[in-house]
Design a protein around this nucleic acid. Structure first.
Length: 597
DNA sequence: GCCGTTTTCGGCCCGACTGTTTTCAGTCG
């Protein structure tokens, strides 16, 4: 790997994550196929346990850190919990050929065409089949028409409310269609960068677009390349095994559709105007409009080819992004801030934030172990955290209200705290703090007694039930919960799951100000499906002086590396190291936890 | 389809919630 090669990622995690990204590609593909098979089998009314096996295998493969391709080579697949002879055989075929016989068979089944319905919240397999059979609807458009015409209520056991629910579900589904979560987009983009960077003649390659700005969801992937050999780059790009369709292939621009449905554009650029092109293709659109407007007022013309003096036509900056900004008399604005949401004003005033970086993080304050629904022991979590250079972590298993996750009651938590202390003494060089993710019940009370909570180093409070309370009630419930003197952090504050579940009704402004009063930090949950608080709320919290805790909520040791997504969102939320409690030294953190700092 | 001091068959998590209906089926996590 050469220095000239720049992936657009900041700092030290560049190559480390690139490798991880390249590894995971086939895992996602296998998982996607198994999920489609599971959906189709469910629609066909097959054995629910057989369906569960496919879903479980899909999840295991998706989440595991190991490269499924490597496991095929070393014949280790059947050693994995949830993968037996039959699934292993299919995985081998998929990795080698991109598909397997059973999947091809499934795709021919009429039920396969109904899998789209299952993406609508509130519609499961049974309902999808009935709607298809009794109303003849084949597409989501059909379903929408039928619901709007009031045809659903004529069916037995269905009423007006269900019609409304389905229409709302369709609306939600449409809003999200075509947008991919950052983790999937980044993983795929990094894998492509890895492949293309091996092509002879490539001197620079970089991710641009909304992915470079680290938006939580991404429409398509843009990759910019400097190369002496455009033909070779385009050949390598369009012949990747993950390509489903080549939409365009030229000397300077090619587009493909990946099997996963993501469109990827690759552009070959001349080195001379790489900086202005990178700036242009990074966006956002609004940011570009604003910077062109600014240039115009200064007698300059800004385009992807450079910043030109209108009179003399002299090029004032195009080789690097820094040159472009300098030409319009601005300091460098980090990609994450380029949303035309105040970055120009801050740049003018010299008040751009010194954005937080991954290396600022000294520990992670929310994670699970085998004590509830995690995959690893306390010690294992501690040892892995240590390899990340962390100085401290907090073990925060669920409380009893979250029954499906094996939540702990008072007595079990008390014993767990002892186990954590014991583990702490066994892993030198890192402080493993005791904690809990305690549920805030519907009435605002906590699911663990004050007595036991007081014994924890870190108390993370969270909502996991009754998501649909009206705003006032939900806000009051949360405020009551976090005003308990033992609570330190409020986890995933809005409860949203990106592309899947809307946030519950909580008044963010009230929550932010009450959290500050109670000396409670709001969590920025780093799980790429959550990213909760989201960017704009982080900025609101920062402006109000409410502290943030960036945690991974890991359920397995490898997930601790999800911190990168939390950092990405934090940067989009203008956060600096000083706004985040897990950049503190252990001594200072303890003061905060004791509500003295 | 997976798994095993209930091991080659038979069990596999289960409670909350919703919309509908009055005892339940479907969806979700």
């Amino acid at each position: 790997m050469t220095d000239a090669l720049n992936t657009g990622l900041t700092g030290e995690w560049c190559w480390h994550t690139l490798e991880a990204g390249a590894k995971r590609l086939e895992n996602i593909d296998v998982a996607g196929i198994f999920d489609e098979i599971a959906d189709t089998l469910e629609l066909k009314g097959e054995n629910p346990f057989r369906i569960r096996s496919y879903r479980r295998a899909a999840r295991v493969i998706h989440d595991m850190p190991d490269d499924v391709k490597r496991l095929v080579e070393t014949d280790e697949l059947t050693g994995i919990q949830g993968i037996g002879e039959s699934l292993a055989e299919k995985i081998v075929d998929i990795v080698k050929t991109g598909t397997c016989d059973f999947y091809e068979e499934i795709k021919k089944d009429p039920a396969y065409n109904l899998t789209a319905f299952m993406n609508i919240p509130g519609v499961g397999a049974k309902l999808a089949v009935r709607l298809n059979k009794e109303l003849g609807v084949k597409t989501i458009d059909d379903l929408e028409k039928a619901a709007k015409a009031g045809k659903l209520r004529s069916l037995e056991g269905m009423g007006e409310k269900l019609e409304e629910k389905i229409l709302k579900g369709i609306e939600q589904y449409r809003r999200h269609i075509g947008r991919f979560r950052i983790a999937e987009a980044l993983t795929r983009a990094e894998a492509i960068v890895s492949i293309l960077s091996e092509v002879k003649g490539v001197t620079r390659i970089e991710i641009a677009g909304s992915l470079r700005r680290r938006k939580e969801t991404i429409g398509d992937i843009d990759i910019l390349v400097i190369s002496r050999t455009p033909d070779r780059v385009m050949d390598a790009f369009t012949s990747m095994t993950t390509v489903a369709d080549v939409l365009a292939k030229g000397d300077t621009k090619s587009s493909v559709l990946l099997r996963s449905g993501i469109q990827v554009d690759v552009r070959i650029l001349p080195a001379a105007n790489y900086g202005s092109a990178l700036h242009y293709f990074t966006g956002s659109k609004d940011h570009n409009v604003a910077i062109r407007d600014r240039g115009k007022r200064m007698g300059l013309k800004v385009s992807e080819y450079g910043v030109f003096d209108v009179k003399t036509e002299r090029n004032l900056g195009s080789k690097t992004e820094a040159e472009v900004f300098k030409a319009v008399k601005l300091p460098f604005i980090p990609p994450e801030l380029r949303e035309s949401s105040g970055e120009f004003e801050a740049a003018e005033k010299g008040t751009l934030p010194n954005l937080i970086e991954l290396k600022d993080i000294k520990g992670d304050l929310q994670m699970h172990t085998t004590g509830s629904d995690g995959a690893n022991s306390i010690e294992e979590m501690g040892r892995f955290a240590k390899t990340l250079g962390y100085k401290f972590i907090a073990i925060t298993d669920h409380s009893k209200a979250v029954r499906v996750a094996g939540g702990l009651n008072d007595k079990e938590l008390a014993a767990h705290i002892k186990a954590i202390r014991k583990a702490n003494s066994k892993v030198p060089g890192i402080e493993i703090m005791s904690g809990v993710e305690v549920d805030i019940l519907a009435d605002g009370s906590l699911d663990i007694s004050d007595e036991v909570l007081a014994d924890c180093d870190v108390v993370v409070a969270a909502v996991h039930s009754k998501f649909n309370m009206p705003e006032q009630e939900m806000t009051a419930r949360i405020i009551t919960g976090i005003s308990n003197k033992n609570v330190n952090i409020f986890a995933h504050p809005t409860g949203r799951i990106i592309n899947e579940r809307e946030p519950y009704n909580v008044n963010i402004e009230t929550l932010i100000s009450e959290a500050k009063k109670s000396k409670v930090a709001l969590e920025l949950n780093s799980h790429p499906d959550r990213l909760d608080l989201k960017d704009i709320h982080c900025r609101q919290a920062k402006d109000a002086g409410t502290m943030i805790s960036i945690n991974t909520d890991s359920h397995a040791d490898q997930q601790l590396t999800n911190m990168r997504y939390g950092i990405a969102t934090a940067r989009r939320g203008w956060l600096e190291a000083k706004d985040v409690i897990n950049t503190y030294t252990l001594a200072r953190l303890r003061k905060f936890l004791e509500k003295q700092g």
